[in-house]
């Protein structure tokens, strides 16, 4: 996985690309750390270019969401596609993390 970060005022937008799996752990934890230290109130994870997620990746989303809640940051998922969308729907993750399909 790789990602790019854009800060627009109080909103941080992060584009995720590639595969969100256990191998992405270190990179994704940097994103999560950013939520604790950044000066923004909203964070959008753009999943449009993410082509694969597994259960470890879903675990990272849970961690991100819990960290965001503790840091009073509103987290949103945006535009999951293909297998990623299917995983989010099967696992009903859109019921715990706001998601724009």
């Amino acid at each position: 996985m790789n990602y790019t970060v854009r800060n627009q005022g109080a909103v941080r937008e992060i584009d995720l690309r590639g595969q969100l799996t256990f191998e992405a752990n270190d990179d994704f934890r940097q994103i999560i750390e950013g939520m604790e230290t950044g000066a923004f109130t909203d964070c959008v994870l753009n999943l449009e270019s993410l082509d694969f997620i597994d259960s470890a990746g879903l675990g990272l989303l849970v961690l991100a969401n819990n960290t965001a809640s503790r840091s009073r940051v509103k987290l949103r998922l945006r535009r999951p596609r293909g297998q990623v969308r299917e995983m989010i729907e099967i696992s009903e993750f859109h019921t715990i993390i706001a998601c724009d399909f």
């Binding site: 259960s55 879903l58 729907e89 099967i90 009903e92 993750f93 715990i96």
Partner: peptide
């Protein structure tokens, strides 16, 4: 069909 939060994520599931 299969829809449902994995176990252990939320007590409200």
């Amino acid at each position: 069909e299969s829809v449902g939060l994995p176990l252990g994520v939320s007590a409200d599931a």
